[in-house]
Amino acid sequence: MTGLFRKMPKSTLSIVLLLTAWRLAAEGVLLFRGVPFPTPEETFLRLLELLAGKNLAGHSLYVHLFSSLRRWATGFAVAAASGVLYGLAAGRVRALERATSEIPQFLLLIPGLAWVPVAILLFGIGERATLFMIAVSAFAPIAVSVLGGAKNVDTRLLRAAQMLGAGEGTLFFHVFLPATLPSILSGLRIGLGTSWRVLVAAEMVVGSGTGLGYSLIQARWTLDYASSFACIAAICLIGFFFERVLIRRLERGTLDRWAPVSEKG
């Protein structure tokens, strides 16, 4: 049995454990509370039905999926661009860092859903409020990570480049930027997860009319828990996919070649 575990890939083992815990929880809830709790099999079957085109909160799953992805991509792009630019600028310009570095730290402490009243006051109910929540929530972790990396760029690398004849432009684009890349990727990874979680929460609360978060809460109101769970599974799978495909691919193309994982620590 131990040998079998050892041979399993790490992710497979995690999935098996998660599904087992879920199955046990479903049995336990039914046994002790008498409430039907969707099992992994029921959820999987409902997901297949939804993928086959079954209606969910007035639209197909694909419409909800597309809406969520569009909102996420827009909000995350705004957060990523502003967070990376801010972090790099504050890392290079001491006065900017001194004046502003506490702001992203402060924003980091605000939970995504706490932005709901601010978002509604600023933009009213709807699309723009959701985008604001995604962008403002993901900005903070990206900015903090990039600023931390930019401030700690090895001075000797900058000096080496200056000594080799680098001017300000070369210094920024060919030394400072690649030296900060590990922190940029780390910030994007955290920001990606944050923005995806806030998107779903914002869709549930702000009232977007479409989206995975919206359909999840609508299914719950109609006591269609299997569909709610199917939405959760879809949200989880998409988030996992983006983290693995986007960020890991970027890391493989850069950091893993510069210093393999075994030598980083």
Partner: peptide
């Protein structure tokens, strides 16, 4: 300012890892 005419070899090589 630093310049290539006065080149420096550092204690730890300081190569660009990327």
């Amino acid at each position: 300012r630093p310049a290539p005419e006065r080149a420096v070899v550092f204690q730890d090589a300081v190569l660009f890892p990327w």
